[in-house]
């Protein structure tokens, strides 16, 4: 009897905890609507979603290495690298440019994966270092300037409106995101990546080619960051070596707030969308609410630590210590 009670109680907590990001989002929306009535306007909500669509793809990409227990710190590097290299080769902004951005993103991710899996270096240091290298290449190619891509086709990828009032990037990013949620949950690749994150030695003994799936995870990360870069560059009509500087912090936080643990094996691409929405609503709402930028930093820190704390409640009994 007592055992039963305890069991139901535990489940309740878990349910509540799963709702935490949603509750945070609703609470933030209510607060910001009071701070600035313009926040809740349809056009502003579209703006939030458009901002989210770029973050979503990048964060979804980074989720793959994190699920494995690795990390990808080269987000900024891949954003500027794929954008600038592609725009240097094909500044016209046609279909070829689109393909190149994705392809170069994939290659840069692949390079990370090879260093991690084949030379057996920790991903933290590999991606920290390749971030320097990719940024360096981008600065070298542009001398720090930007390359404007003045093509309507290219601009329409983000700014066009197939459905009146809704920018294309929201719809396209949504489709890509659903494909990758499917890939992470329903396919062998996704399950294996998860297994490696859970217990790498067990996964290896089960006969999973660990090195191969590590490379795949980093390549997927690169591809999706490239995809985010595409929408970003299309929105701004340019590629620049100074484009991606704010993304590392925000996307990592989005992934973790979404419920994916940095230790790997827990969470999934599916929930990353909630973390992304929290981040973009915070950014947009605080700006519109006229909150001092310096205070914005502090508010962000409190909300993020708070959400991670709330999310981790059900697992707390399992973790005696935290590193």
């Amino acid at each position: 009897m007592t055992a039963d009670v305890r069991k139901t109680k535990k489940i309740d907590i878990k349910k509540v905890v799963n709702l935490v990001p949603v509750i945070v989002i609703i609470a933030l929306m209510i607060i910001f609507s009071f701070l600035s009535p313009a926040f809740i306007r349809f056009r502003n909500l579209v703006e939030i979603l458009q901002l989210s669509s770029i973050y979503l793809l990048i964060a979804a990409g980074v989720t793959f290495p994190i699920l494995m227990g690795s990390i990808d710190l080269s987000i900024t590097g891949i954003i500027v690298g794929s954008g600038v290299i592609a725009a240097t080769i094909a500044p016209v902004g046609g279909l070829f440019t689109v393909f190149l951005i994705l392809f170069i993103g994939l290659c840069l991710g692949l390079f990370n994966g090879l260093l991690v899996a084949k030379i057996k270096l920790p991903s933290f240091i590999v991606t920290l270092a390749t971030n320097f290298i990719y940024c360096g290449i981008a600065v070298a190619l542009t001398e720090g300037y930007n390359i404007n891509i003045r093509s309507n086709f290219f601009s329409n990828i983000s700014n066009g409106r197939m459905i009146p009032g809704i920018p294309n990037s929201i719809i396209l990013a949504g489709v890509v995101y659903i494909v990758f949620v499917y890939l992470s949950e329903k396919t062998k690749t996704g399950r294996y990546i998860m297994a490696i994150g859970g217990k790498e030695d067990v996964a290896a003994r089960m006969g999973i080619n660990v090195a191969k799936y590590k490379i795949i995870a980093f390549a997927l990360s690169g591809l999706l960051i490239g995809c985010g870069t595409l929408f970003l560059s299309a929105r701004l009509g340019m590629a620049s070596a100074r484009l991606g500087s704010g993304y590392l912090f925000n996307t990592l936080i989005a992934v973790v707030v979404g419920g994916t643990a940095l230790s790997g094996g827990v969470g999934g691409v599916r929930r990353t969308i909630l973390g992304v929405l929290i981040i973009t609503i915070l950014e947009n709402g605080m700006t519109l609410g006229g909150i001092d930028v310096r205070i914005q930093y502090m508010v962000k820190a409190v909300i993020l630590i708070g959400s991670v704390f709330l999310i981790s409640i059900p697992d707390r009994s399992r973790q005696d210590l935290m590193k």
């Binding site: 600035s36 313009a38 306007r41 703006e47 929105r235 340019m238 704010g246 700006t287």
Partner: peptide, 14 residues
């Protein structure tokens, strides 16, 4: 640049 455009876009929406 992305924050700059996003700021202008948000305020235009309001």
């Amino acid at each position: 640049p992305e924050k700059f455009i996003s700021n202008m876009s948000s305020y235009a929406a309001s």
